[in-house]
Design a protein around this nucleic acid. Structure first.
Length: 365
DNA sequence: AAGTAGGACAACCGCCTAGGG
DNA sequence: TCCCTAGGCGGTTGTCCTACT
């Protein structure tokens, strides 16, 4: 039975199989990549061939001695581990490794199973609601990856950790601030998270998310919509008070066609160039949305901005946050101050039967 | 087409903790 | 109480892939 499933997952060549990791072993990171093109398929076949060479070499090594194997797992090793666990279950990893005939440490087997081979491991890009949850939980628990992963069904601590390091820290770096700084946390909470919540809500309309995430997403999404509006106003207010010290407005460009995902944004600003003032920034933050409110907000931008928007620009959050940071620095005005009271005033804590962001915030540590 | 830089992610390393003898 | 072992966890590294020049 297990072998049948494995064969199916391998022939599927993607993440749709019951054991995505096995297929992925023959096609590195296949499941999370776009559909393979013909050249890609050829490349994959080559990888499989290489894999077979590797297995042959591994077999020769086995004959040479009993030293532990390291590095990438072969398809055979994956199958051995999966079949053994299917028959005997998990636990006692060192003993399991020996009994299964794997020349790996127990730790290595455990890691391979938990992060890759488990049937319920979910692969592919993080959805907006998942990103939202990660941001929120990290803001409360810090680098407690396993604890965070426990709230994201099918996601591993390793995957979340990688996401944080490659995406989130990268953007903190772009903003010239520490990922643990209050400024970055504020930017996350009051700019990025509402944006993600809106996207999650929109996505929920098209594809109802899993029950485990639905309540959080819907609750956060509803709260976030208000927070975005409030943020707009505050940014406008801030603009008025800081206008004299701000550089001339100029559109923030973004090469991303959708600006829909943090993972796809491209902060096209250049450090030497002019940056938008807060009003532009607020619009920039929201203009990617198509609803009327943001359309009206966009109408308040300068002619130059409109012209640039008509060309091909889309705005993205990180360009905006960068602009905000610039503004804050120039005006000696911390974003924290702008949003102060905003969080205390209960904008995010509206009474909702769902699991709101503030509910999450108040969860026991 | 080739070279290079950066991104993504699987895997490893080292430390910590819990449990058993 | 101490020691040993295994498992868990967070940090780091290595490798492959893609995009860009």
């Amino acid at each position: 039975m297990m072998e049948m499933v494995l064969q199916q997952s391998q022939s599927a060549g993607g993440g749709a199989g019951m054991f995505p990791g096995v297929a992925a072993a023959a096609c590195r990171r296949g499941p999370s990549r776009p559909a393979a093109t013909a050249p890609m398929m050829a490349k994959q076949e080559q990888v499989v061939a290489d894999e077979q060479d590797q297995q042959q070499a591994a077999g020769e090594e086995e004959g040479a001695g009993d030293e532990l194997r390291r590095g990438p797992w072969t398809v055979d090793e994956d199958l051995t581990l999966i079949n053994y666990i299917a028959d005997h279950g998990e636990g006692r990893w060192n003993a399991l490794a020996r009994a299964a005939g794997l020349k790996r440490t127990g730790k290595s087997c455990r890691l391979r199973w938990l992060n890759y081979l488990r049937p319920d491991v979910k692969r592919g890009d993080f959805t907006a609601d998942e990103q939202l949850l990660i941001l929120d939980l990290h803001s409360r628990w810090g680098n407690r990856w396993s604890k965070i992963a426990a709230h994201l069904p099918g996601r591993t601590d390793n995957e979340i950790k990688n996401y944080w390091r490659t995406r989130v820290q990268k953007h903190a770096k772009q903003l010239n601030c520490d990922v643990n700084s209050k400024r970055f946390k504020d930017a996350m909470r009051f700019l990025w998270m509402p944006r993600l919540a809106e996207r999650a809500t929109a996505a929920a309309h098209h594809h109802p998310p899993s029950p485990s995430l639905t309540t959080c997403v819907l609750g956060g999404g509803m709260a976030a919509s208000s927070s975005s509006s409030a943020l707009m106003k505050m940014l406008d207010d801030a603009t008025v008070s800081n206008r004299s010290s701000c550089s001339p407005s100029s559109a923030v460009t973004c090469s991303s066609s959708s600006c829909s995902s943090l993972t796809s944004v491209d902060t096209a600003h250049d450090d030497g160039g002019a940056r938008p003032h807060a009003a532009s920034a607020a619009v920039a933050f929201t203009a990617a949305d198509d609803d009327d409110y943001w359309g009206a907000a966009t109408a308040t931008t300068t002619t130059m901005q409109q012209q640039q928007q008509q060309n091909d620009q889309h705005y993205d959050f990180w360009s905006t946050a960068s602009a905000l940071q610039h503004l804050c620095t120039a005006a000696d005005h911390d974003i924290t101050g702008w949003v102060q009271g905003f969080s205390d005033g209960g904008i995010l804590s509206g009474s909702s039967s769902f699991w709101s962001l503030d509910d999450i915030w108040r969860m026991p540590q």
